[in-house]
């Protein structure tokens, strides 16, 4: 393959994944009537705003509940990320360093829960949260997913790579179980813990089904679920507003990701494949 065609192929590949996002970004700077006016025929302005405007962002901010819902998403992000990182760290430590009967079986059981997709288990999960009296509450949203098999796996693998001699040295120096974790192991798996935290933080922006089911108060709802209510594919949707609001929703995730991504090493992103 010559250089030109290989470049073209790469460019096409990138375009397939980026163009839709860019298109949505462009749509957020448009006026709705302008968008519909240019929709009939193919021209430059079918895709790009002819008169860029921030009007949609103004209207999005003015949506009565959006700020609260956005706050819910971000707060849930922090709670989920921190809760998952802490519970995975503790469990990973126990599963890697402690000897107890059924350790491997427990680890396998945890991994096995990966095979239970939310889509499939939604009703029974709903009943459990209802029985616990947590429907329509923030904790009802958060608690079911704080245990993360992926998090436990990630942290356990990272701890496995820390030499046991380090633990032994620390405990000979008088460290108890907690101090061993805090002083000998944690400093060596910081990358994995941050990866775990970040992954589960960003993961909250994936959420749709569970909040749709378990949260029926508007002001307790997550932003992305509320915005989905603005879409009515069979009638004319105000896409400018949808994308302005969606972009406002994504911005916090991007900021946090940009701040923390330098702690990630590429190895952590790819070890899942081995």
């Amino acid at each position: 393959m010559n250089r030109f065609s290989s470049l073209t192929l790469r460019f096409l590949l990138a375009a397939i994944f980026v163009a839709p996002i860019l298109l949505a970004l462009a749509a957020s700077f448009r006026d709705n009537s302008e968008m519909y006016r240019h929709a009939g025929s193919l021209s430059f302005w079918t895709f790009l705003p002819s008169e860029p405007t921030l009007d949609a962002y103004r209207r999005a901010i003015a949506l009565p509940r959006l700020p609260m819902q956005l706050f819910n998403t971000v707060l849930l992000g922090f709670v989920m990320a921190t809760g998952t990182a802490v519970s995975s760290l503790l469990a990973g430590y126990a599963l890697s360093r402690f000897r107890f009967r059924g350790r491997e079986a427990l680890f396998l059981l945890m991994l096995f829960t990966l095979f239970i997709p939310v889509d499939v288990i939604l009703p029974p999960l709903f009943f459990v949260i209802r029985d616990l009296g947590l429907i329509d509450s923030f904790w009802g949203l958060a608690l079911p997913f704080i245990f993360s098999p992926v998090g436990v796996y990630l942290i356990r693998q990272a701890i496995e790579e820390v030499p046991r001699e380090l633990d032994h040295a620390a405990s000979l120096d008088g460290a108890g179980l907690w101090e061993v974790l805090r002083t000998a192991i944690l400093p060596n798996i910081r990358g994995a813990v941050i990866a775990c935290w970040l992954m589960h933080f960003v993961f909250v922006w994936e959420w749709y089904l569970w909040p749709l089911t378990a949260m029926r108060r508007d002001d307790g709802q997550l932003a992305q679920v509320a915005i989905a209510g603005l879409i009515d594919p069979l009638r004319s949707t105000d896409y400018a507003l949808v994308f302005a609001a969606a972009i406002l929703t994504i911005v916090p995730a991007f900021i946090v990701f940009a701040l923390l991504q330098r702690f990630l090493t590429s190895s952590q992103a790819t070890t899942g494949g081995k």
């Binding site: 519970s87 126990a94 029974p124 009943f127 179980l177």
Partner: peptide, 29 residues
């Protein structure tokens, strides 16, 4: 139960969540 004592302290959060929100829903179902 050999060795579970100290392990349980660390496993506790994950184990409780696992039972409540992964296993119980199956049982509930």
């Amino acid at each position: 139960l050999e060795g579970w004592g100290p392990a349980l302290v660390f496993l506790c959060p994950a184990l409780v969540m696992l039972c409540l929100f992964k296993l119980w829903p199956i049982a509930e179902a």
